[in-house]
Amino acid sequence: MKPPHTRRVVELKIPNELGYEKIARETVGTVAKRLGFDDERIADIKLAIAEACTNAISYGSQTDTRTKIIVVLTADEEKLEILVKDPGFGDSPPPTEVTVPDIHKMVEGKAKLGGMGLYIIQELVDKAEFIQSGDDNGNQFHMVIYRMNDEDIEFNAAKST
């Protein structure tokens, strides 16, 4: 019999080409459903991972389809962690801060359309950040989604006192 509380890890390698982020999106949807996230949260997680993969493909790799984007999903009883790694062949380093998109400027033609991906990710998951890469020069984007919502945390805290 399997132990009830162990980490589950799913690792994907997807081609460095726009459109293939859908594989990561569908995979994380399946994992999140198994973990018991509700439909709204699953939709959030699917969008967040798709945006992260799209960024990795668009900015981290010069869309070289010979390279791969690596996606690692790690689930335990507390959280779902997502790591998206790209080869780091992009022209510029990852941004250090997230800017709130100004739709008014976009509509008035004073700002370029787009640039909303990181902001959306930040709004949808509990934690999102670029982290220091290991041995290679690639970028690593890390996201965390906690399995308990605020009400669960308050309920458990009340129970333990």
């Binding site: 945006e51 739709i103 976009m106 509509v107 787009g114 991906g117």
Partner: peptide, 14 residues
């Protein structure tokens, strides 16, 4: 929908 799709709709709004 993703952020690129939203950008398309902002273009339509414009």
């Amino acid at each position: 929908i993703n952020s690129a799709g939203i950008a398309i709709l902002i273009g339509v709004v414009t």
